[in-house]
Write a protein that binds this DNA or RNA. Structure first.
Length: 246
DNA sequence: CTATGTTTACCTCATG
DNA sequence: CATGAGGTAAACATAG
Protein backbone atom coordinates (compact mmCIF):
# COMPACT_ATOMS: atom_id res chain seq x y z
CA UNK A 1 0.00 0.00 0.00
CA UNK A 2 1.50 3.29 -1.07
CA UNK A 3 2.07 5.99 1.41
CA UNK A 4 -1.13 8.01 1.72
CA UNK A 5 -1.07 11.50 0.36
CA UNK A 6 -2.85 14.62 1.32
CA UNK A 7 -5.65 14.11 -1.14
CA UNK A 8 -6.25 10.51 -0.24
CA UNK A 9 -8.88 11.09 2.38
CA UNK A 10 -11.26 13.76 1.32
CA UNK A 11 -14.02 13.77 3.86
CA UNK A 12 -12.91 10.47 5.30
CA UNK A 13 -11.15 10.35 8.59
CA UNK A 14 -7.40 10.18 8.09
CA UNK A 15 -5.66 7.20 9.69
CA UNK A 16 -3.58 9.36 11.98
CA UNK A 17 -3.88 9.74 15.68
CA UNK A 18 -4.14 13.19 17.20
CA UNK A 19 -0.60 12.78 18.37
CA UNK A 20 0.54 12.11 14.84
CA UNK A 21 -1.44 15.01 13.43
CA UNK A 22 -0.02 17.34 16.02
CA UNK A 23 3.49 16.11 15.44
CA UNK A 24 3.03 16.72 11.71
CA UNK A 25 1.90 20.25 12.33
CA UNK A 26 4.81 20.98 14.59
CA UNK A 27 7.31 19.36 12.29
CA UNK A 28 6.03 21.28 9.33
CA UNK A 29 6.52 24.63 10.98
CA UNK A 30 9.77 26.54 10.49
CA UNK A 31 10.50 26.74 14.19
CA UNK A 32 9.15 23.31 14.99
CA UNK A 33 6.88 25.07 17.38
CA UNK A 34 3.28 26.24 17.05
CA UNK A 35 0.50 27.79 19.09
CA UNK A 36 -2.63 25.75 19.46
CA UNK A 37 -4.57 27.77 16.93
CA UNK A 38 -1.94 27.04 14.28
CA UNK A 39 -2.07 23.35 15.01
CA UNK A 40 -5.80 23.49 14.46
CA UNK A 41 -5.28 25.35 11.23
CA UNK A 42 -2.72 22.91 9.92
CA UNK A 43 -5.15 20.06 10.45
CA UNK A 44 -8.25 21.68 9.05
CA UNK A 45 -6.29 22.99 6.09
CA UNK A 46 -5.28 19.61 4.83
CA UNK A 47 -7.83 17.24 6.27
CA UNK A 48 -11.37 18.28 5.38
CA UNK A 49 -12.72 15.70 7.77
CA UNK A 50 -11.69 17.92 10.64
CA UNK A 51 -13.63 20.90 9.43
CA UNK A 52 -16.68 19.47 11.14
CA UNK A 53 -17.33 18.73 14.78
CA UNK A 54 -14.48 20.99 15.77
CA UNK A 55 -15.43 21.12 19.43
CA UNK A 56 -15.11 17.40 19.74
CA UNK A 57 -11.75 16.76 18.14
CA UNK A 58 -10.17 19.95 19.38
CA UNK A 59 -10.98 18.96 22.92
CA UNK A 60 -9.37 15.61 22.28
CA UNK A 61 -6.35 17.24 20.78
CA UNK A 62 -5.89 19.56 23.73
CA UNK A 63 -6.19 16.57 25.98
CA UNK A 64 -3.35 14.94 24.09
CA UNK A 65 -1.17 18.01 24.32
CA UNK A 66 -1.49 18.15 28.06
CA UNK A 67 -1.49 14.46 28.73
CA UNK A 68 1.46 13.32 26.66
CA UNK A 69 4.98 14.14 27.73
CA UNK A 70 6.06 14.19 24.11
CA UNK A 71 4.55 17.66 23.81
CA UNK A 72 6.25 20.53 25.54
CA UNK A 73 4.61 23.85 26.24
CA UNK A 74 7.01 26.73 25.73
CA UNK A 75 6.15 30.16 27.11
CA UNK A 76 5.80 33.03 24.70
CA UNK A 77 8.40 35.68 24.48
CA UNK A 78 7.32 38.77 26.33
CA UNK A 79 7.47 40.87 23.17
CA UNK A 80 5.14 38.45 21.42
CA UNK A 81 1.97 38.72 23.39
CA UNK A 82 -0.84 36.39 22.51
CA UNK A 83 -3.30 33.92 23.86
CA UNK A 84 -1.66 30.59 24.43
CA UNK A 85 1.82 29.20 24.64
CA UNK A 86 3.78 27.48 21.90
CA UNK A 87 3.89 23.73 21.60
CA UNK A 88 6.85 21.73 20.51
CA UNK A 89 8.03 18.13 20.64
CA UNK A 90 10.42 16.68 23.08
CA UNK A 91 13.44 15.55 21.07
CA UNK A 92 13.45 12.22 22.79
CA UNK A 93 10.01 11.63 21.40
CA UNK A 94 11.24 11.41 17.88
CA UNK A 95 11.58 7.68 17.75
CA UNK A 96 8.04 7.47 18.95
CA UNK A 97 6.75 6.36 15.60
CA UNK A 98 7.86 3.30 13.75
CA UNK A 99 9.47 3.91 10.38
CA UNK A 100 8.46 7.52 10.54
CA UNK A 101 5.17 6.74 8.90
CA UNK A 102 3.21 8.37 11.68
CA UNK A 103 0.70 5.59 11.34
CA UNK A 104 1.79 3.50 14.26
CA UNK A 105 3.24 4.40 17.53
CA UNK A 106 5.80 2.31 19.28
CA UNK A 107 4.97 3.12 22.81
CA UNK A 108 3.75 5.99 24.81
CA UNK A 109 6.43 8.51 25.46
CA UNK A 110 6.79 9.12 29.14
CA UNK A 111 9.35 11.17 30.93
CA UNK A 112 10.55 9.92 34.25
CA UNK A 113 9.84 12.11 37.19
CA UNK A 114 13.32 13.56 37.38
CA UNK A 115 13.38 14.51 33.72
CA UNK A 116 9.93 15.97 33.93
CA UNK A 117 10.81 17.96 36.99
CA UNK A 118 13.90 19.52 35.52
CA UNK A 119 12.07 20.34 32.32
CA UNK A 120 9.27 21.96 34.24
CA UNK A 121 11.77 23.81 36.35
CA UNK A 122 13.38 25.31 33.31
CA UNK A 123 10.14 26.26 31.66
CA UNK A 124 9.03 27.86 34.86
CA UNK A 125 12.31 29.73 34.97
CA UNK A 126 11.65 30.92 31.45
CA UNK A 127 8.21 32.17 32.37
CA UNK A 128 9.60 33.79 35.46
CA UNK A 129 12.23 35.47 33.39
CA UNK A 130 9.51 36.75 31.09
CA UNK A 131 7.76 38.38 33.99
CA UNK A 132 10.95 39.95 35.21
CA UNK A 133 11.72 41.18 31.74
CA UNK A 134 8.26 42.59 31.33
CA UNK A 135 8.48 44.39 34.62
CA UNK A 136 11.81 45.80 33.57
CA UNK A 137 10.30 46.99 30.29
CA UNK A 138 7.53 48.70 32.15
CA UNK A 139 10.13 50.62 34.05
CA UNK A 140 12.30 51.52 31.08
CA UNK A 141 10.16 51.30 27.97
CA UNK A 142 12.20 52.80 25.12
CA UNK A 143 14.66 50.32 23.65
CA UNK A 144 13.31 46.85 23.60
CA UNK A 145 16.23 44.75 22.61
CA UNK A 146 13.98 42.20 21.00
CA UNK A 147 13.43 43.48 17.52
CA UNK A 148 13.86 40.41 15.39
CA UNK A 149 10.96 38.21 16.34
CA UNK A 150 11.20 34.50 16.78
CA UNK A 151 10.67 32.24 19.67
CA UNK A 152 12.27 30.61 22.55
CA UNK A 153 13.79 27.29 22.06
CA UNK A 154 13.55 24.91 24.93
CA UNK A 155 16.99 24.29 26.18
CA UNK A 156 16.99 21.58 28.70
CA UNK A 157 16.63 18.57 26.52
CA UNK A 158 18.94 15.69 27.05
CA UNK A 159 20.55 14.61 23.86
CA UNK A 160 20.22 10.93 23.23
CA UNK A 161 21.52 10.46 19.71
CA UNK A 162 21.03 6.76 19.28
CA UNK A 163 19.70 3.63 20.90
CA UNK A 164 23.09 3.17 22.46
CA UNK A 165 23.16 5.29 25.53
CA UNK A 166 26.55 6.85 25.25
CA UNK A 167 27.10 9.03 28.21
CA UNK A 168 24.68 10.95 30.33
CA UNK A 169 24.85 14.62 29.46
CA UNK A 170 24.32 16.58 32.55
CA UNK A 171 21.00 18.22 32.07
CA UNK A 172 20.98 19.89 35.42
CA UNK A 173 24.10 21.76 34.48
CA UNK A 174 22.13 23.54 31.78
CA UNK A 175 19.71 25.00 34.20
CA UNK A 176 20.82 28.05 36.07
CA UNK A 177 19.33 26.99 39.31
CA UNK A 178 20.27 29.66 41.74
CA UNK A 179 19.54 33.35 41.24
CA UNK A 180 17.52 34.16 38.19
CA UNK A 181 19.56 35.94 35.55
CA UNK A 182 19.02 39.65 35.90
CA UNK A 183 20.50 40.95 32.69
CA UNK A 184 18.58 41.05 29.46
CA UNK A 185 21.27 39.34 27.46
CA UNK A 186 20.00 35.96 28.42
CA UNK A 187 16.92 36.59 26.37
CA UNK A 188 18.97 37.34 23.33
CA UNK A 189 20.62 34.04 23.81
CA UNK A 190 17.26 32.44 23.33
CA UNK A 191 16.27 34.31 20.22
CA UNK A 192 15.63 32.37 17.09
CA UNK A 193 16.04 33.67 13.55
CA UNK A 194 12.97 35.33 12.12
CA UNK A 195 10.59 32.58 11.06
CA UNK A 196 9.84 34.17 7.70
CA UNK A 197 6.14 34.77 7.97
CA UNK A 198 4.90 32.72 5.07
CA UNK A 199 1.29 32.96 6.01
CA UNK A 200 -0.76 30.13 4.51
CA UNK A 201 0.52 26.62 4.33
CA UNK A 202 3.82 26.05 2.53
CA UNK A 203 6.28 25.60 5.31
CA UNK A 204 9.69 27.01 4.59
CA UNK A 205 12.04 24.26 3.41
CA UNK A 206 14.49 23.93 6.19
CA UNK A 207 15.07 27.04 8.15
CA UNK A 208 18.69 28.02 8.12
CA UNK A 209 20.05 27.36 11.53
CA UNK A 210 22.46 30.17 11.59
CA UNK A 211 24.83 30.24 14.50
CA UNK A 212 23.19 33.53 15.38
CA UNK A 213 26.18 35.16 16.90
CA UNK A 214 25.63 35.69 20.55
CA UNK A 215 26.25 39.07 21.97
CA UNK A 216 27.96 38.66 25.23
CA UNK A 217 29.03 35.08 25.63
CA UNK A 218 25.67 33.61 26.46
CA UNK A 219 24.83 31.30 29.28
CA UNK A 220 24.21 27.63 28.62
CA UNK A 221 20.91 28.56 27.07
CA UNK A 222 22.29 29.14 23.63
CA UNK A 223 24.33 26.00 23.45
CA UNK A 224 21.45 23.93 24.63
CA UNK A 225 19.04 25.60 22.26
CA UNK A 226 21.36 25.07 19.35
CA UNK A 227 21.84 21.46 20.23
CA UNK A 228 18.11 21.10 20.44
CA UNK A 229 17.63 22.50 16.97
CA UNK A 230 20.42 20.44 15.56
CA UNK A 231 18.62 17.42 16.86
CA UNK A 232 15.35 18.52 15.39
CA UNK A 233 16.82 19.18 12.01
CA UNK A 234 19.21 16.30 11.74
CA UNK A 235 17.46 13.41 13.39
CA UNK A 236 14.24 14.02 11.58
CA UNK A 237 15.15 15.58 8.31
CA UNK A 238 13.79 12.58 6.47
CA UNK A 239 10.49 12.73 8.27
CA UNK A 240 10.27 16.44 7.71
CA UNK A 241 10.89 15.89 4.01
CA UNK A 242 8.09 13.35 3.87
CA UNK A 243 5.71 15.77 5.49
CA UNK A 244 6.66 18.51 3.11
CA UNK A 245 5.70 16.36 0.16
CA UNK A 246 2.11 16.44 1.30
C1' DC B 1 -16.44 35.94 27.81
C1' DT B 2 -13.71 32.75 24.98
C1' DA B 3 -9.54 30.30 24.03
C1' DT B 4 -6.37 27.66 26.13
C1' DG B 5 -4.80 24.02 29.47
C1' DT B 6 -5.25 20.31 32.99
C1' DT B 7 -7.14 16.46 34.82
C1' DT B 8 -10.13 12.45 35.59
C1' DA B 9 -13.04 9.05 33.98
C1' DC B 10 -14.67 5.77 30.91
C1' DC B 11 -14.92 3.63 26.55
C1' DT B 12 -13.06 0.71 22.50
C1' DC B 13 -9.61 -1.88 20.38
C1' DA B 14 -5.36 -4.57 19.81
C1' DT B 15 -2.04 -7.60 21.77
C1' DG B 16 0.08 -10.95 24.83
C1' DC C 1 -7.81 -12.02 31.12
C1' DA C 2 -4.52 -7.85 31.86
C1' DT C 3 -2.35 -4.10 29.86
C1' DG C 4 -1.65 -0.22 27.08
C1' DA C 5 -2.82 3.08 23.32
C1' DG C 6 -6.04 6.02 21.70
C1' DG C 7 -10.64 8.69 21.55
C1' DT C 8 -14.27 11.19 23.85
C1' DA C 9 -16.68 13.70 27.47
C1' DA C 10 -16.61 16.73 31.00
C1' DA C 11 -15.34 19.41 34.97
C1' DC C 12 -12.75 22.48 36.16
C1' DA C 13 -8.91 26.46 36.10
C1' DT C 14 -6.73 30.42 34.10
C1' DA C 15 -5.08 33.86 30.78
C1' DG C 16 -6.00 37.51 27.53
Amino acid sequence: MPRPTRESYGDQKPPFSYIALTAMAIWSSPERMLPLSEIYRFITDRFPYYRRNTQRWQNSLRHNLSFNDCFVKVPRRPDRPGKGAYWTLHPQAFDMFENGSLLRRRKRFKLHKGEKDSLNAELAALASFNRAFLARQAGAPPSANLANGGLYAPSTFVSRPSPEPIESPDTAALLPIGPRPRRAFTIDALLEPEPRRSSPSPPAPLPPMQPHCPLPLPPPYLLAAQRYHAELLAVNSHIIRLIHEW
